[in-house]
């Protein structure tokens, strides 16, 4: 069973796809799950990796990122979204990611997720880009 993250101060890193950044503003859609994510938003725990390490690992696994933003566990729980550990083991195609975690949006419908994503984006942008500085 996955362990819920309880340190409300812990930051969780979120990668931003290059096409979802206009100027220096990320789309709110970066902060909600994609249709294929089954309501689980991927993040990386700052207690186990720096923003730079999370970025490098993400890129090295063949995915695109142009910036890393962060939200705290408490900011997710304030939206009634639980965050849980979800370490990824190494496979043929992917390197291991022990810092991986997910934010569970499943109690919110698609319409609600859109508005939550906008509030989370406001907080992430206010905190500022975590990497590259």
């Amino acid at each position: 069973m996955s362990t819920q993250l309880t340190d409300e101060e812990e930051l969780l890193f979120r990668q931003v796809h290059p096409d979802l950044l206009d100027g220096d503003i990320p789309a709110s859609s970066n902060f909600k799950p994609k249709p294929s994510d089954e309501n689980m938003l991927s993040v990386d725990r700052s207690s186990l990796a720096t923003a730079e390490e999370a970025f490098d690992l993400y890129i090295s696994n063949g995915r695109k990122s142009i910036a890393v933003y962060a939200l705290s566990v408490g900011e997710f729980t304030g939206e009634k979204i639980n965050c849980v550990e979800d370490p990824v083991e190494a496979s043929e195609k992917m390197k291991a990611n022990p810092a991986h975690a997910v934010a569970d949006f499943s109690t919110h419908n698609v319409s609600q997720q859109g508005k939550i994503a906008k509030r989370l984006k406001q907080k992430a942008v206010a905190r500022g880009k975590q990497h590259p500085k």
């Binding site: 096409d19 789309a27 859609s29 249709p35």
Partner: peptide
């Protein structure tokens, strides 16, 4: 306006 694609083939203005 900030302009982005959506996964569903739409275009998002924020």
């Amino acid at each position: 306006y900030r302009i982005y694609p959506t996964d569903e083939g739409g275009i998002l203005f924020e």
